[in-house]
């Protein structure tokens, strides 16, 4: 095992939606080049916490975040931080595939274009190809890059969204239930992909499927009613949970 480096450190994070205290005292260290799964029953705050990690919650006016979240030791809620720059470093894939109603090529090229990552058309072509290959989509779409991204199947659309997210060379990839709208075959493809992405990125995935968490992740965090109940090695969480609530959830008694 190489030395485990902490990529994101959350320290006593609180999230409020108006009066509603959605996340309570969450401390978690997310490691580099590791897949971390967030599991828990619906409404437990796992997606909310995920969205704190790239400040997507900023778009919700009533949402207030307290406590500290650092990326490589830098506080991402520091007033000097521009969330736009943060989001280029911390990419996100959403629950429902949401390609832009543009061509496949433009979907992937959008991020590099707005961040000015490439200097020539050839370089951009290269980035698009590399990203699509990383998302295991290149072979299926290489002949129709100008076709609309919305014309792809659900699984292909989700992989296109992953390609779009990795095209900006993020350091962390956040995935909010990326397989919930996909069929089992597409799910298997995306899961395989997540395992490959681990080589280059730190991946955080929110999932409702415990089997999925067990299959793809090395670390698992169990959330319940806004609290982080237990965080540890995935094998340990699933075989030998320390907290009785975790055990109840993974054996299907709460949720």
């Amino acid at each position: 095992m190489d030395i485990e480096t902490v990529k994101i450190r959350a320290d006593k994070v609180q999230v409020f939606y108006g009066e509603n205290h959605a996340i309570k005292d969450v401390d978690v260290n997310i490691l580099d080049k590791t897949v971390t799964a967030f599991i828990g029953p619906s409404g437990c705050g796992k997606s909310t916490f995920l969205r704190c990690l790239n400040r997507m919650n900023d778009t919700i006016p009533s949402c207030r975040v307290e406590g500290g979240i650092t990326l490589d030791g830098e506080d991402i809620y520091d007033p000097r931080v521009d969330p736009v720059q943060l989001r280029a470093k911390v990419g996100m894939v959403f629950q429902k595939p949401n390609p832009f109603p543009k061509s496949i090529y433009d979907n992937v090229a959008y991020g590099p274009r707005i961040h000015g990552l490439t200097r020539s058309k050839a370089e951009l072509d290269e980035v698009v190809e590399k990203s699509l290959r990383r998302a295991a989509l290149w072979n299926e779409v290489k002949d129709r890059l100008q076709a609309p991204g919305t014309g792809l199947s659900g699984g292909q659309q989700q992989r296109l969204c992953i390609a779009r997210a990795v095209a900006t060379e993020p350091e962390v990839l956040l995935m909010d239930e990326p397989c919930s709208a996909l069929d089992p075959i597409a799910t298997a493809q995306v899961e395989e992909l997540i395992d490959e992405l681990r080589e280059n990125f730190s991946v955080v995935i929110v999932t409702h499927s415990m089997q999925q968490a067990a299959r793809v992740s090395q670390k698992t965090a169990f959330f319940h009613l806004g609290n982080l109940v237990e965080y540890g090695e995935t094998t340990q969480i699933f075989t030998n949970p320390r907290d009785p609530r975790t055990e109840s959830y993974i054996t299907g008694r709460i949720g």
């Binding site: 790239n54 997507m56 778009t59 736009v84 720059q85 943060l86 989001r87 280029a88 990419g91 996100m92 894939v93 959403f94 429902k96 949401n98 390609p99 832009f100 109603p101 959008y110 991020g111 707005i114 961040h115 969204c161 779009r164 997210a165 095209a167 900006t168």
Partner: peptide
């Protein structure tokens, strides 16, 4: 316009203005 499109644009690091004008 579905909010998912705004999320998608913000998620790849587009600014608010870019999100509005590009998407």
């Amino acid at each position: 316009v579905p909010p998912s499109i705004r999320d998608a644009a913000l998620g790849v690091g587009a600014s608010k203005l870019q999100t509005v004008f590009h998407h």
